[in-house]
Nucleic acid binder design. Structure first.
Lengths: 211, 211
DNA sequence: TAGATTGTTAATCGATTAACAATC
DNA sequence: TAGATTGTTAATCGATTAACAATC
């Protein structure tokens, strides 16, 4: 299949989550406007996304929830080969994200957490054992980890991200405020303070971009 | 000034942070390509952003760091009237974000945190006292809080976000996986699992959108 | 002057939305 | 049939990038 637009992939993730909830409620089909309403987007956008992944619905019943979930899962996490995730830096943010992962029904598998604090190494966080950052390469290779969540203090961000890449990780989410650049790696950056300051700007009455 | 593009505002926040660091190092002027390099973006983008906020540099020395920081601060957080922030739901994520705020040099002021757990109410988190969610409206009005960070469990997201709006909060960052819709409020949603699943998709070899 | 830089418009790219044909 | 729905192309919107004039 052709590469999907980034925004479409993001919505697919959300479609799957709410569809799973509907399925659990016993619903088996859904119309584009119903799915749209659950996510506060437009029905056209839903239909276009579904078109892009090659699924088709019926005029009478809409989309088959079960089929749609299966297809999205095939696209996002490729049921055949499970993708393993590591959290690197298990401070407060790392632990918070860990809980998010455990509470979600994502198909991605959290395999390991890493830290350089001796008190943390060897202990278990919500069922996942913490390794030393020195053993990153060894564990990443052994567990087949491909995705890393970077939540170390900013001063270590650059060094540790390079280690992650060298260990074979191909996708990194960088939660530190340090801007990174890693060739050959899909890098997603999220900046907490920048998000807050953006909201501050658009919340000011004179910038009323109210939604 | 005309309303700035969202992405420009985000970059302004990052410009300010790295410029402050340069200023602390004793640098007083900076060229667009230097600033660009610090954030791994292009010099054109830097110049265009700076043009949009009406600052001008000189051909010989580039931009005055001090002036640029002052101007960005004026735009983002309006030095005249400080904006107050509240964190609503002080679980692990709320506490992690609180630390990010305290470690940053943002001009935004964290005034209060809220939770409904009796054990938490009245205790202090990194120097900020926790109030009951029932007293949200009272405290928001008293402290002049305009921005709220929503980090409650998903089942409370909708109800609490409505309370925040009714209390007078005009900008909300929603970290719960529940999609919200609030008229008359600037709402920014961040979905941890969606971000991870997006990275999973683009990290797969066949989707090599490697950057 | 030559080279490096800023400032700005026009072109391009990516994503959303409008419009509408086809179908049950 | 009439009304509701899906599927899809074209138009629009927002953001980035290319191109280049002006300046020191």
């Amino acid at each position: 299949m052709k590469l999907l637009p980034e925004r479409t992939v993001e919505r697919l993730s959300k479609y799957r989550r709410v569809l799973q909830r509907e399925l659990d409620n016993g619903t088996d089909h859904i119309y584009s406007h119903e799915l749209a309403k659950l996510l506060h987007i437009t029905p056209v956008q839903v239909r276009r996304d579904i078109m892009l992944i090659g699924h088709t619905g019926t005029l009478r019943k809409g989309y088959s929830i079960d089929n749609l979930i299966k297809l999205i899962s095939e696209i996002i996490d490729c049921s055949s080969s499970v993708q393993n995730v590591a959290i690197v830096g298990i401070g407060k943010l790392g632990q918070a994200l860990l809980d998010y992962l455990n509470d979600s029904n994502t198909k991605l598998n959290l395999s390991a957490v890493f830290d350089n604090n001796p008190d943390k190494i060897g202990t278990s966080y919500s069922g996942t054992v913490c390794y030393s950052i020195e053993s990153l390469k060894k564990i990443v290779e052994r567990e087949g980890i491909t995705i890393g969540i970077l939540t170390v203090p900013p001063e270590f961000a650059k060094e540790v991200s390079t280690m992650m890449k060298d260990a074979g990780i191909v996708g990194i989410i960088n939660y530190t405020p340090v801007s990174l650049k890693l060739d050959g790696t899909f890098l997603e950056e999220y900046d907490v303070i920048t998000t807050l300051e953006k909201v501050a700007y658009f919340s000011k009455p004179k910038n009323a971009k109210l939604l």
